[in-house]
């Protein structure tokens, strides 16, 4: 009994938090998704079983929204990880006094409140004479409406890239100097050093950033909500989580469907779990967490 007491004491705070803030909402969402809870039935919701899920499958727009989500997550993720890696490598190759301020600059989008950040984007992309992009290009267009996907991905990407940048930079910094010296002695070019020394050492951070960003992109919709609200036009940039939000919390005359929205959210939970397992599999998680065969001191 005593054997388990110490680990239990150490694990219980985190376990409690996970139960309270992660597990309970998931259970609540799933339970909600089996009810017809909406504005009008709030006082007397009834149990409807799988009806909300049947409704979802019958939704003629669901395929479009699903494909939008795949597009949004894949492209933004590629930008976030790629740009984060590029920034980390570039700023690590130059002396710290140049690299550090440059990295700080890339943190700006992240520390700005989303509403302010989106206002800046909208301002830049407006028609001439207000919009800077229109002014510079000499073509007066509302660029947000003309190229909504590019804007959505860039606006999210500029925020997301700094996350990867920070993680990768610290990972690069923690690579033992001796490895670089050894590579230099062997006559490796910069590219070869990156390819053969740095990148293999970054496998774990890349897995972490990829997995973490995939999951957060699946559920994040605030920048899309503020930029396009799923438009312009017909579900052009509406993604799964935004649709769930629209169903559960937003309607012109305020008649919202919590049950249906919860069903969409529950599907997202399942997708999230499946994606996580997939990542663990392809990045060979077990091998990553085994003890290293060589230790460098």
């Amino acid at each position: 009994m005593r054997r388990y007491l110490t680990p239990f004491l150490f694990l219980s705070p985190a376990t409690l938090l996970i139960l309270l803030f992660f597990f309970t909402p998931v259970v609540a969402t799933i339970l909600l998704s089996f009810t017809d809870l909406s504005t009008t039935t709030f006082k007397n919701p009834s149990w409807v079983g799988l009806k909300n899920y049947q409704d979802l499958l019958a939704d003629p727009f669901l395929k479009k929204i699903f494909l939008n989500t795949v597009k949004y997550v894949a492209l933004t993720l590629a930008f976030n990880v790629g740009m984060g890696l590029l920034l980390a490598l570039l700023t690590s190759l130059v002396p710290e006094r140049y690299g550090d301020p440059f990295r700080a600059l890339w943190l700006l989008p992240r520390i700005l409140p989303p509403v302010v950040y989106v206002f800046i984007w909208q301002g830049l992309l407006a028609e001439a004479p207000m919009g800077l992009v229109s002014d510079i290009l000499g073509v007066s267009k509302n660029w947000l409406v003309a190229a909504p996907w590019t804007v959505v991905i860039l606006a999210n990407g500029f925020v997301g890239a700094s996350f990867g940048m920070l993680i990768f930079t610290s990972a690069i910094r923690s690579i033992s100097r001796e490895l670089f010296y050894a590579a230099a002695v062997d006559g490796a070019t910069t590219w070869q050093t990156i390819r053969r020394v740095v990148l293999p050492m970054l496998a774990w951070p890349i897995l972490f950033v990829t997995a973490y960003q995939t999951l957060s992109l699946l559920t994040s919709f605030e920048y899309i909500l503020l930029l396009t609200d799923g438009g312009p036009g017909f579900y052009t940039t509406e993604v799964w989580s935004l649709r769930a939000y629209h169903l559960a919390l937003s309607n012109y005359f305020g008649n919202v469907e919590f049950g249906l929205g919860a069903a969409m959210a529950a599907v997202l939970v399942v997708i999230g779990v499946v994606v996580s397992l997939f990542y663990l599999k392809i990045f060979n998680f077990k091998a990553l967490v085994t003890e290293p065969k060589i230790e460098i001191y």
């Binding site: 009008t40 727009f61 438009g231 312009p232 036009g233 017909f234 579900y235 052009t236 309607n251 012109y252 005359f253 305020g254 008649n255």
Partner: peptide, 23 residues
């Protein structure tokens, strides 16, 4: 009618679909 908001949303989706040239 309590469900009119849903009616209106559906019609609006149709308008947005036609106007943007998607269908």
């Amino acid at each position: 009618h309590p469900d009119f908001p849903k009616w209106q949303d559906a019609l609006y989706r149709g308008v947005s679909a036609v106007e943007s040239g998607q269908v």
